[in-house]
Design a protein around this nucleic acid. Sequence first.
DNA 1: ATTATATCCCAAAACGTTTCGGATGTCAAA
DNA 2: TTTGACATCCGAAACGTTTTGGGATATAAT
Lengths: 339, 339
Amino acid sequence: MRGPTLKDLAEKLGLSITTVSRALGGYSDVAEATRQRVLQAAEEMGYVPDVTARRLQKGRTDTIGFVIPTFGPRFSDPYFSELLAGIGNEAARQNFDLLVSTRAPDTPEEKQAYRRMVEGRLVDGLLVVRTRVKDPRITYLSNLGFPFVSFGRSDLAVDFTYLDVDGALGMEWVAQHLIALGHERVAYISAPQDLMFCIHRSKGLQATLQRNGLSLRSGHLVVCDLTEGGGFKAMNQLLDLNPRPSAVVACNDLMAMGAMSAAQRRGLAVGHDVAITGFDDIPLAQHAHPPLTTVRQPIYDIGRRICRMLIRMIRGEELPERHVLLEPELVVRESSGIG
Amino acid sequence: MRGPTLKDLAEKLGLSITTVSRALGGYSDVAEATRQRVLQAAEEMGYVPDVTARRLQKGRTDTIGFVIPTFGPRFSDPYFSELLAGIGNEAARQNFDLLVSTRAPDTPEEKQAYRRMVEGRLVDGLLVVRTRVKDPRITYLSNLGFPFVSFGRSDLAVDFTYLDVDGALGMEWVAQHLIALGHERVAYISAPQDLMFCIHRSKGLQATLQRNGLSLRSGHLVVCDLTEGGGFKAMNQLLDLNPRPSAVVACNDLMAMGAMSAAQRRGLAVGHDVAITGFDDIPLAQHAHPPLTTVRQPIYDIGRRICRMLIRMIRGEELPERHVLLEPELVVRESSGIG
DNA sequence: ATTATATCCCAAAACGTTTCGGATGTCAAA
DNA sequence: TTTGACATCCGAAACGTTTTGGGATATAAT
């Protein structure tokens, strides 16, 4: 059941382990004829090097780690599957393996997953996503000098390599769009405020409103989790207000979909009686009814890019930019107003 | 930067590597006092065993592999993130690591990913999902006798361990539901017919229609990929027909959402002018507009379960059932008819 | 004939564990 | 005093690679 080893090959060929190894490694100090013999025997016997042994010897794993922050038992987020596809494809392209762990954020289990990957030397570098205020993961990794790239900034004093999307700018566009449509009672469905991306988006929204003489009235900011269910509940709260908001900005698309659902269940026409916007532009946004106005960030590409940055870092290459801030793109569809 | 090894600990304590190792391993042939000394020193120096070295010695990896079949660059599927969460959480609970690869199905790259994991001895077992007709992955793994559990059956002669949801039964219920509502012109948006789950669903649908004197008319079966975009295009084709179908059954929820979108873009009221159903019951189905009639399968639990089965298998334990077939559940919402 | 230079090959160490088979010392029973 | 039993510890081998630092042989230059 277990495959042949270098030793088996060497014995069969009457060569030393060293020579077989070097032949396969393409070293120039083995005769071309021998090399061919080795190659052929390896092929015949179905030799595949034992990755574990190689890792132990080389002192590196050629593996990158990714701890996915999952919430609750039903973690169903199209956003993450797309990010994962980007990361996975890029890793494969560069001959890296990908070790994945799914853990609830800010728990001992999450901490343990990071420690295991880092201190157990399971991976050469880590990808950190959904950065949080005073993110302990970043402190931990920075202190150790362990290679990592984060998708999202932080409010810590330490300097680290990250890629982020300018959420404040995205929300500025959303706000301007809504203001241009004449909305004055704008409400905001926010994710928990310890998430950095949420903080940036909130700031962008509120700053732009204020610059235009508006603001979130009391009760017009409601916090919920990042799911359709959360958005649904939050929207119901908002619609109980009197007067109710004329426009509702959600922190991501999933929440926006939930919000639309809540409005529609009350008989309101989204895009008419109330404007709703999201953030992310997941593929479903385009096929929602009505199609969702949102802010696009290239999730798949982001996955590839942070993965590429990390691998460069691991290889010890100099990164062209250690801090990347992407401009998102406003995508206007019908949920924010028809006509 | 690299952490301390057993050797470092042993030197510091004036003990042998063996004793330190056995002390940490909780063996009874080391004095309690020594054990405490070792434990404390390990704690102080922040000793964490090198997982790679341990793997090489033990001859197993305590890792399970999972190759996610991804389509195209934008692979955004809530279904998979939920499945992954189930798998990941169960694996972690049992102290297994999870190695993930993302590859397009039926490509040389996919084959290579499997070979690497198996023959490179990177994992102790594999999870196979989205089984296909004459699935080469199953043939490959069966021939080698490599431990794996599949989510989905196959049409191969070989016997292997699987868990599946009875798609035929699910579709039977969908069909009966639509027939009870009086529909006679039922159309079907199918996924590529080399996917086993699709075959089962198709059969269930067609058999039930036939048993009731109905059938899919020509042009009423259209095949597309498993995305919203696919469903959207397929639905447009169906709506160009004259007479157009009065009910459209989609092979999964994502496609159903696309189909709804297409119908609505033509001014049709879903659930009124045309009935639409899905399959999976992703969380978004509930918050679609109108909410989507669909068939529920417990994706998260399935993830946990196949993972648990695989780990049992790896541990050499006897499985209570090698073939599990779950009954899905019809969830009637408004997209199939209002009133 | 001697020395230099390639060319081809290999033994042994190393990576950090776990485990097998003793080795040593102590103490009680014979 | 010897024997056995027990408690505690350790040296060395093993897992399968890669790499280091030569060694042997043949050919070419002096």
